[in-house]
Amino acid sequence: MIFRKLFVAALATLSLAALSPAADAPSKKIDVDLSRMSGTVVYGMVYQMVTYPKRFVGKHIRMKGIFSTYYDNEIQQRFFGCVISDALACCSQGLAFELAKPRKFPDEYPKEGATITITGDFDLASEEDEEPYPIIRNAKMTNE
């Protein structure tokens, strides 16, 4: 059973590698560019993404925000996020992201609190027995 799962996973990885665009291919069209919007609208937009994530699945997103990271001791996994604040700076919301090309933490990541721009595909990640949460996959990160 476990061998079959491993085989399917390997096959899926190979298929994705074969289908993935070449490094110099033209970049995908951005469906939602949060980096061009004002702070007030960005906050409203991210609220929509977090509240109604299914509407945004598959969209290519670009967002600018604050780099944040969190280590979950229970599942021993580190999460990375891009956080934005509202106009009063009293509330903040963020989206988790997963880099297309994984980097070493902490050496290859910016410092927590640094301004970053993330471009990637909006998706829903799900853990066992938990509500799916929004995540930006295949992300590219640039920091200022």
Partner: peptide, 10 residues
């Protein structure tokens, strides 16, 4: 948010 409205309108 409750006292200043913040972005609740959005």
């Amino acid at each position: 948010t409750t006292l200043f409205g913040s972005t609740s309108i959005l």
